[in-house]
Write a protein that binds this DNA or RNA. Structure first.
Lengths: 186, 186, 186, 186
DNA sequence: CATGAATGAGACTTCATTCAT
DNA sequence: AATGAATGAAGTCTCATTCAT
C-alpha cells in the first residue's frame, strides 16, 4: 500500500495534515512519522518546512486551476459555470470537514517572514478573481459591470468559505449559491 | 508608563501579538517578556495559553459588540448604518496592517481540541450575522428578504476582510462597500 | 554530592568537557546529561552554546589572571617569577592530560562567526603578553629590551604549550623552562 | 575548469575547507557540494571523513617536507635558511588569513579516538623539530647546543604561528624572525 | 566509477507548564 | 501577588554513513 517514493509520501501526508490542522500546528515529526520516512529523508527532498508548505500550496493551486479550467472550457452557460463552481465548493467544504481555504488558513499564520508563501497566496487569489471576472465577461456586455459582478462573486466565494469554516455549517455556501445565481440572471 | 496591573499588561500584550502574528506564532515567553512579567505571574492569572486566547477573543468580541451597538443605536438610516460599518472596517484593516479578523485567523489554527475557542468563534460570527439582519429588518418589509440581504452583507463583510488580508490590499473592502450600498437601495 | 545550583553544574561540566574534547566536539546533550539537568534548564541560564563557551572562557581567564597576579605580587625576583610560571604551566599540562590552552583550542574551530569568542581570545592572549613584559620591565633597564624579551617569553609559553599538546609530551615545556631561565639571566 | 578526477577534487576541496574552518566545522555535505560530486562517490574514494582528514594532512606534510628539503638543500648559510623559513612562514600566515597550522588546529578537536591523526601530528611536528636541529648542526660545533637551539627555534615557530592565528596579527611572526636571527648569530 | 535516495542518531533550540520560595 | 529556576516533550534541521541501481 505504501508508496515507494518518499518524496510523494511526504507531500501527500503534509497536504493532508496542513489542511486539516493548519501549517503551524503540524510538526516535521508528525509528518515523517505519518509518512513513514526518516527525518533526513525529508530534508533530502525539501530544504525546509516552509519549502514543503510552498510545494503543498503549489499542488493545491494546480488542482484549483485545473478545476476552474475545466469549468471555463465546458459547454455550460456562464450562469451554469458559476453554479458548478459553488456546487463544487459545497462538496469541498463537506468533504474537508469544513476546513476551508488552504491559502487563507496559511496566510493567517505566516505574516511577516515567508515572502514566498505570501506571494503564492496573492497569486492564487488573484487567479480566482480573474476566473470569476472572465466568466462574467461572457455574460455581461458591459465590461465594467462584468468586472464588478466578478469581484462580487469573488467576495461571496471567499466569505462563504471562511464562514462555513468558522461556523462549521454549510449555510454560508448555500446563501452564496443563491445570491450568485441571482447575480448571474441580471 | 508601564501599567501596574500585571494581568492587564499580559492581556494587552497578548492581544497585540496574537492579532499581529497569529495565535500559534506567539509563545508564552514572548508574551511575558514583552509584558515584563514573570512566567509564574502569568499562570497566576491565566490557567493556560488557551485561556488567555479566550480572554483576548472576549475583549475583541466586547469591543465589536459595543461598536455595533453604537451603530445600531445611532440615528442613522439603515443604509447609512451599513455604510458606517464598512467604513470602519476599512479603517480597521488599514490600521491593523491588513491582519484581518482575529476570529477567523484563530480558527485557521484551531481544531476540535479547542472546543471553547470554537464556540466563541461561532458566537461572534453569529452575532455579526444578526447585526446585519437586524439592520435589514429596519429597511425591508419582507422579513425573508431582510434575512437574505443580511446574510449577503455578512458574506461581503467576511469575504472582503479575508481577501484584503490575503492580498494586502484594500480593494476588496471598497468593492464590498459599493455592493453593500447598492443592496441597501433596493 | 550534586550541587543544587544547575547553572554552576552546567558551567563546571562544560568547562571540563570543552577543555578535554574541544568546543565543537561537545554537544549540548552530553553537557546536560553529565550535569544532570534538563535541556530547557540549560537555556534558562545560557542563551546558546556559544554563550556558554564565552562563560567558560571567562572563568579560565579569571583564574589565569588571578594566577598571574599572585605571581606578579609575590616577593620573588623576576627570574623566579618566570620560573614559577613555567613550573605551573608544566603542572597544568600534566594535570590536563596535555590538552593545552583552552583559548587556542577554541580559536581553532571558531573562525569567521563567533566575534565574541575571538575577542576574548585576543584579550586573553594580549593579557598574558603584558604579564611577561611587565616582569621583564622589573629585570631589564632597557625598556625596549624588556618588551623584546617579554614577547620572546610569550612565544615560548605558547609554543611549548601547543607542542606539548601536539606531541603529548612534556619536553617542550622543559625546553621552554630552560630557555626562559637563560633569558632572564642576561 | 573542473577537474575530471573526482578524488582529486574532493581532496582539494577538503584541504581548503578543513584549513579555513577547522576539521569539525566542515561537513561531508559541504565538501561534496563544493567539489560537485555525489555522496557515494566520496565514499568510493575515502572510507570515512577521518580518512579524508588523514589524506589531507598527508598532502600538507608532503608539501611541508618538500619545502623544508628545498631549504636544507639550498646553497644558503644556516642562518639564511632559518631566515628563509620564517619569511615563508610569514607569507603563509598572511595568505591563509591567519589560519595557522593545520596539524595544531586538527589536534585541538581530536581526542584519543583518532589514533591515526594523532600519530600524523606527532610525526609532522617531530619532523619539523628535526629540520631545525639539522640546520643548527651545520651552524654550531657543539651538538648539544645545536639541539638546544633547534628546539628553541621549534618553539618560536610554533608559538608565533599559534599566536598570529589567535591575535590575527603578524607581529608574533616578526618577533620570531628577529629572535631567530639573533639565535643563529651566536 | 558514478549516482541520488534513504537512514538512525544527534545537532541546537523552544514549547507550555509547574514548583519551591 | 510575585518570582526565577526547573522540566519533559517537542520544535526544525544536520550529521556521517549505507544501499540499490
Amino acid at each position: 500500500m505504501r508508496k515507494s517514493n518518499a518524496k510523494e509520501r511526504i507531500l501527500e501526508t503534509a497536504s493532508k495534515l496542513f489542511h486539516e490542522k493548519g501549517y503551524s500546528e503540524v510538526g516535521i515529526n508528525e509528518i515523517i512519522e505519518t509518512a513513514e520516512t526518516a527525518k533526513a529523508s525529508f530534508y533530502q527532498h525539501y530544504p525546509s518546512k516552509e519549502a514543503l508548505c510552498e510545494a503543498w500550496l503549489d499542488t493545491v493551486h494546480e488542482r484549483s486551476e485545473n478545476h476552474r479550467s475545466d469549468i471555463v472550457d465546458s459547454e455550460q452557460a456562464p450562469a451554469e459555470k458559476i453554479e458548478s463552481y459553488f456546487r463544487d465548493l459545497e462538496s469541498f467544504m463537506v468533504n474537508s470537514n469544513f476546513r476551508g481555504c488552504p491559502y487563507s488558513n496559511t496566510g493567517a499564520v505566516t505574516d511577516g517572514a515567508c515572502a514566498g508563501i505570501i506571494g503564492q497566496i496573492q497569486d492564487h487569489k488573484e487567479s480566482i478573481r480573474q476566473f470569476f471576472r472572465s466568466i462574467c465577461m461572457q455574460q455581461f456586455e458591459d465590461a465594467a459591470k462584468a468586472e464588478c459582478v466578478g469581484d462580487h462573486l469573488f467576495l461571496l466565494y471567499s466569505g462563504s468559505t471562511t464562514e462555513a469554516q468558522n461556523l462549521k455549517d454549510i449555510w454560508p455556501i448555500k446563501v452564496a449559491q443563491a445570491v450568485a445565481a441571482e447575480l448571474m440572471k441580471s
